Simulated scan of single mutants.
Amino acid sequence: MKITGYRALTTHHDWGRPIGDVNGVVAAGVTPVPVVILETDEGLTGVGLGSVHDIESVFPAIEGEDPRSVSALYDRMLARVFKAGHAGATFGAIGTLDSALWDLKAKLAGEPLWRLLGARERHVEGYASGLDIGLSDEELAAFYARMAERGFVAGKLKGGRSVTDDVRRLRILDEALRANAEEPALMLDANESWNLKQATRFVSAVERELDLAWIEEPLRRWDARGHARLSAGVRAAVAGGENLTGLEQFTPHFDAGSLDVVQVGAVWGVTHFLRVAMAAHSRDLPVSPVGLTANPAVAAAAAAVPNHLTSEVQDLGSPFGITIDQETVDGGVLLGDRAGAGIEVDEDAIARASVSSEWIIPAGPHVRPTRAGLSLVPGAKDLN
């Protein structure tokens, strides 16, 4: 079997609510979802969700190759762009193709991907995460009540502007999730909006009122020394890594002992997740993939590694025209029996749809505010 080509298309996810973080909000709650369908000379296809940025530069590394050589092909893709660099969205294209390759490999084996990767159980423990900074308190309560109905015992709040607001809103999560646990796990995500002293003051103030399981992305992603100092100064675990593109970018954090929970962006693909998970496991660190909602391939990988802690579940729906063989139950994701990663794509429906969606807008969460991390008081006025 040989890889002969690919089809790239874009569908959308309608979240049914504003989504965002301290850096900004997509008020419409509709975002794009790139899809890649990898073609072979035998007619079998593999599906990956994530990014198509610079895919025309990456694809020649795997064209004409046997798709079963997944790990070797992953390294060929990295090598293909080593001069220009594989960081950012280009790494996303590599991850999307990698996920499509794993989908193909499992289909050829006639097994669900979680089984092919060696998992014993198909249930992936998760936590609820509403991308919720744009929600009112009432909307926040309603979202976490729905997630509590699915059995979740942990939740993550997007915050970082006001200690008072974040404590109040974390209590809303706590109240909703107490339907399933006497002491739910509460996490706070600052999305790289602070400097070290801001983070220390803010987290310490929250911890005087509540117990935090972890503080996520408190500082810039590359600040290993700062993360280590923060971890030593607060009770909460420090979580991060979702925006690190490549195993080598985790090395300074591992050397500094700066991450207590090692996170991996689900959009970066299966092979990257597996490699980071094993590197973390060698240091007795837990791993937690971020953004699992539309990435069943990484969910399958999470089921297979020995140090998976919990995965971020952001929504109960799927992107338009995409059917995923999984359920959100019992506080996590239950993977299905369909061969491959369990993704079906209705290309005709996606082609007929005409929906405007965008992540990268001036007011959105993917655009860093000018004064982020530079204000004495981390307030809404300073961060917008």
Rank of each mutant, 00 (worst) to 15 (best):
D174E: 15
E175V: 13
E175L: 11
E175Y: 00
A176L: 07
L177I: 09
A179N: 04
N180T: 03
N180C: 05
A181F: 04
E182H: 12
P184I: 05
P184W: 03
L186P: 04
L186G: 02
L188K: 04
L188N: 07
N191S: 13
E192D: 09
E192N: 13
S193G: 11
W194I: 02
N195P: 02
N195G: 12
L196I: 14
L196H: 06
K197T: 15
A199T: 02
A199M: 13
T200N: 11
R201I: 03
F202S: 09
S204H: 01
A205Y: 14
A205P: 08
A205M: 12
A205E: 15
V206W: 04
E207T: 07
R208W: 07
R208I: 00
R208F: 01
A213T: 10
W214S: 04
I215K: 04
I215G: 04
L219S: 07
L219T: 06
R220G: 14
R220H: 14
R220D: 15
R221W: 07
D223C: 02
D223T: 01
R225H: 08
R225N: 10
G226P: 04
A228S: 15
V234W: 01
A236S: 15
A237H: 14
V238R: 11
A239C: 13
G240A: 08
G241N: 10
E242H: 05
E242P: 09
E242F: 10
G246P: 08
Q249Y: 08
Q249P: 03
F250C: 01
F250M: 04
F250Y: 15
F250K: 03
P252V: 09
P252K: 05
D255K: 15
A256E: 13
G257T: 11
G257I: 08
S258R: 05
L259E: 03
L259R: 01
D260S: 14
V262N: 03
V262G: 01
Q263W: 07
Q263H: 05
Q263V: 12
G265S: 11
G269N: 05
T271S: 13
T271M: 05
H272R: 01
F273N: 06
F273L: 01
R275Y: 01
R275I: 09
V276S: 11
V276N: 10
V276G: 11
A277I: 05
A277G: 12
A277K: 08
A279P: 09
A280N: 00
H281Y: 15
H281P: 02
S282I: 12
D284P: 01
L285G: 05
P286A: 12
P286I: 06
P286G: 11
V287K: 03
S288T: 09
